[in-house]
Design a protein around this nucleic acid. Structure first.
Lengths: 212, 212
DNA sequence: CCAAGGATCTCCCAAAAGGGGTAGGGCACC
DNA sequence: GGTGCCCTACCCCTTTTGGGAGATCCTTGG
C-alpha cells in the first residue's frame, strides 16, 4: 500500500469564507481515495500564501471574500504559477464575474448548488488539464461577448449613480463637468441596453458589473 | 448505554438548497453525541413535508430557496406547530428579511460564515427554548424598527421602478394615474431616506425589501 | 505618422422626476 | 361614530435626466 505513488493523489486547496461549506467540501472529497485537502483558506490573501507554500494540484476558490477577492487571488496565483489549476466555486454572481474569473485564468466555474458528483468529476477533469464550464454559464457569458464593455470611467460613474448621486454631484466628485457625466451616461445606457439610470444599475448588479 | 433516553438526543432537520453546505452541517453536527440529523430538505416545500412527518426538535432553515422560500416555510410550520424551534441559517440578506423571519416565528438567525461552535451552541440554546439573535443582526434590525415601513402598494411600485419602468408605464400597468405613482414615490423616498429612485432601489435591495 | 478608442467639453431640446400642497373615498379598529 | 391609514387624484413649479450632434485632446498600437 505504501507503494502508491504520490502523483496519483490530487492535492487540493479549498478557499471559502464559510467554514461550514469548507467542511462540506472536505466531507465529500475525503470519501475519494485519490483526493486529499492539503489546506484551507478563508480569503484571497490566505489562499495566495497557502498556494505558494503548498503548490496544490487543484484549488477550489470562492469569489466573494473579505480581504482579497477570488478574482484577485486567481490573478496573483496564475501570474506566479501559470499552470495552476483553479476551479471557481461560488453562487452565481453574473456573467461579468464569471467572465472575469475565466480571463484571470480559472479552468472551471461551478455553482454552490451542485451535487457531489459534479464536484468530483470537475476536479478530476481540471486536474488532467481540461477546462469545465457548465453549459448554462457558458451560454450566459456567450450572450454578452459581443457587447461593448463599460470602460473603467463609466463603471466609476455608474457606481456613483447606484449610490443615488446626481450627475452634478458625480461631476463634482470626479472633478469633471456635468456635461461629461451626461456623456458617460449616454454611453452607458445603450451598452447595458437600459432604459434609464435605475435600470442600468439593476442590470449591472445582475450581471456582476457592480456589487450590491 | 441503551438506557440513555431519547429525549436527550436533539433531532434536527436541515433545509438548504446547497447540498455541499448540508454536508458541512452534517459533518459538524454528527460529531456531537446528542445531536442527530433526522432529515434534509432542499426547499421550503420539502421542509414543510419533512417537518410534518418527523417533528424535529430543531430546524435549520435557509431563506432563499426555489419552490418555497424559508420565510413561507417557517410561517406554515409555525402555524401548524406553534412550538416548532426554527433557526434561520443564511447569508445576510438585509434587516427586512431578518425581521420577517423573526416575525414568522424563527427563534434564531445565524449567518453562514459562522464557526462550528456558534452553530452547536445556538442549537442547544434554541432547543432549550431560548432565542438567539447575534448582536450585529439585532443592531441592524433595531436601527429600522422605528422606520415607517413601505406599504404593499409602495413595494409594488418600487419593484417596477427597479425594473427600469417610468412612472407613466407603471401607472399603465397598475391601472392608476401617473400622478398617483408620483404620490407613491413621494412617500417611498423619505421612508427609505433615499435621494432618488435609483437610490431607493439600492437601499431596498440592501435591506432585503426587494430581491435582485 | 495615422487610426482608434477614451475622456473631456459644448449647445439645444424634450421628457421625466421630484417637491410642495390639498383632498376625497374606503376600510378597519377602537 | 370617529380616527387613522391607505390609495387614489389633482394642482403648480423646479430640477434632473436622456437624446442628438459635434468637437478637442491624449494615449496606445500598428
Amino acid at each position: 500500500m505504501t507503494a502508491i505513488r504520490d502523483t496519483e493523489t490530487i492535492r487540493i486547496l479549498t478557499v471559502d469564507d464559510h467554514q461550514l461549506l469548507r467542511e462540506g467540501i472536505a466531507a465529500v472529497l475525503e470519501s475519494q481515495e485519490d483526493m486529499t485537502i492539503v489546506a484551507q483558506a478563508s480569503n484571497g490573501r490566505e489562499a495566495v500564501e497557502s498556494f505558494r507554500r503548498l503548490r496544490p494540484d487543484v484549488t477550489l476558490m470562492d469569489l466573494r471574500m473579505p480581504d482579497m477577492s477570488g478574482i484577485e487571488a486567481i490573478t496573483v496565483i496564475r501570474h506566479e504559477f501559470p499552470n495552476a489549476r483553479i476551479i471557481v466555486l461560488t453562487t452565481y454572481a453574473g456573467d461579468a464575474q464569471a467572465a472575469a474569473a475565466l480571463k484571470a485564468g480559472a479552468a472551471g466555474y461551478l455553482l454552490k448548488n451542485l451535487v457531489r458528483k459534479e464536484l468530483i468529476e470537475t476536479i478530476r477533469a481540471v486536474h488532467s488539464g481540461k477546462r469545465r464550464i457548465p453549459p448554462e454559464i457558458a451560454t450566459e457569458i456567450a450572450e454578452h461577448v459581443a457587447d461593448d464593455e463599460l470602460t473603467d470611467r463609466e463603471i466609476e460613474v455608474l457606481r456613483r449613480v447606484a449610490a443615488g448621486k446626481s450627475n452634478k454631484l458625480i461631476a463634482a466628485e470626479l472633478d469633471i463637468s456635468e456635461g461629461t457625466v451626461k456623456t458617460h451616461m449616454k454611453s452607458i445606457l445603450p451598452k447595458l441596453d437600459a432604459s434609464d439610470r435605475t435600470h442600468a444599475v439593476m442590470i449591472a448588479l445582475k450581471r456582476g458589473i457592480l456589487d450590491l
